[in-house]
């Protein structure tokens, strides 16, 4: 594969300036919001952090597959959608205790993810990027359509894990589920980070993405690596979908938005970097809620896409990522 990454190669100094600049920008936006809106502004920021944790969680799914196979899975958001919808069927409607519903939902989605990898991605692993993109898009819309068939078009509500009475915190109201999301995001990020940086298997999988010879020395073939990555990504995605469903609702068509936002968070923080996903998610979440407060809320989603496109163009390796040179 050639020109695989992107044209980079600017001076390190400029990159640092950009990084500091964007940090200052985000800081200023937050400060301005706090000063001009007072406690309402603080409320926005707190909600932004919750939303940002959601994006960070979904970004992890992208990162896992990208780190080990250099594929972007356009169906990643659909795994979260399926997780939420299954949870609804199993627990909210089916009466399973929530923890059991959680486990079963995650298992089912994980199995689906693994099966899809074996059936569609694995046979096509040597094909061009465009082929893989189109296949994962095919998976995404097929999953979405199946969900519409099964669950219909109305969004569904799932009970919160620990009640709905908001907790007051410095004048802002926070629903308890926010803490679940936040905590869950932190746990997942740490686990994924440790997996890829501390375990032999994880390191081998990362190596498999760029150099299959080196990886096979560690005993990981790029084929197993891809399967494991899809399995993990499906599991993480499904779990994320379940944890956020009580806040976000769940619906057959929620996958694409979640996917896009998660991808934006991943790119913003540096695709493939676990800490980057958290930073990217939080920045995106906060900016988005503030925009939604200041501008007509219909434009909320446009912010994410604008950020996505700007980051891709200005700093494709993300805020925390490292520049890679053109590989010929």
């Amino acid at each position: 594969m050639e020109y695989w990454e992107f044209h980079v190669g600017r001076a390190d100094r400029r990159q640092r300036a950009l990084l500091v600049g964007s940090a200052v920008f985000v800081g200023l936006v937050i400060a301005a919001t706090l000063i001009s809106k007072g406690s309402t502004g603080f409320q926005w920021i707190v909600s932004g952090i919750t939303v940002g944790s959601i994006y960070a969680l979904i970004a992890m799914g992208f990162s896992v597959i990208y780190s080990s196979t250099r594929v972007i899975n356009f169906a990643q958001g659909e795994f979260s959608m399926l997780g939420g919808m299954l949870m609804y069927s199993l627990s909210t409607r089916g009466g399973l205790p929530p923890w059991l519903g959680f486990i079963f939902s995650v298992l089912i989605v994980t199995a689906i993810g693994a099966a899809l990898e074996r059936l569609t991605i694995h046979p096509m692993r040597d094909q061009s990027v465009i082929t893989i993109i189109i296949i994962t898009i095919g998976i995404a819309i097929a999953l979405r359509a199946v969900a519409k068939w099964i669950w219909g078009t109305d969004p569904v509500k799932i009970a919160s894990f620990s009640g709905d009475s908001p907790i007051r915190f410095l004048g802002a109201a926070v629903v308890p589920q926010s803490f679940w999301v936040f905590g869950f995001a932190i746990v997942v990020v740490i686990l994924v980070f440790l997996f890829f940086n501390r375990t032999l298997l994880g390191k081998g999988m990362r190596a498999a993405a760029t150099n299959s010879d080196a990886a096979s020395l560690v005993g990981v073939s790029s084929s197993t690596s891809s399967l494991i990555a899809w399995t993990i990504a499906a599991a993480v995605g499904a779990a994320a979908g379940i944890v956020i469903a009580p806040i976000n609702f769940a619906g057959y068509n929620f996958g694409i938005m979640l996917g896009l936002k998660g991808f934006t968070a991943a790119v913003l923080g540096g695709l493939g970097s676990a800490p980057g996903a958290v930073v990217g998610g939080l920045v995106l979440g906060v900016l988005e809620t503030i925009t939604a407060g200041v501008f007509p809320s219909g434009y909320k989603d446009a912010v994410a896409f604008l950020i996505l496109i700007l980051v891709l163009l200005i700093r494709p390796q993300g805020l925390l990522g490292r520049a890679e040179d053109v590989k010929v």
Partner: peptide, 22 residues
């Protein structure tokens, strides 16, 4: 946008399509 390649181009055009729809 066309400076981007592969997956990045796909995501960027997808984002542009969504912005247009919005």
């Amino acid at each position: 946008v066309l400076r981007l390649k592969g997956h990045y181009l796909a995501m960027a055009t997808l984002g542009l399509g969504e912005i247009a729809f919005i």
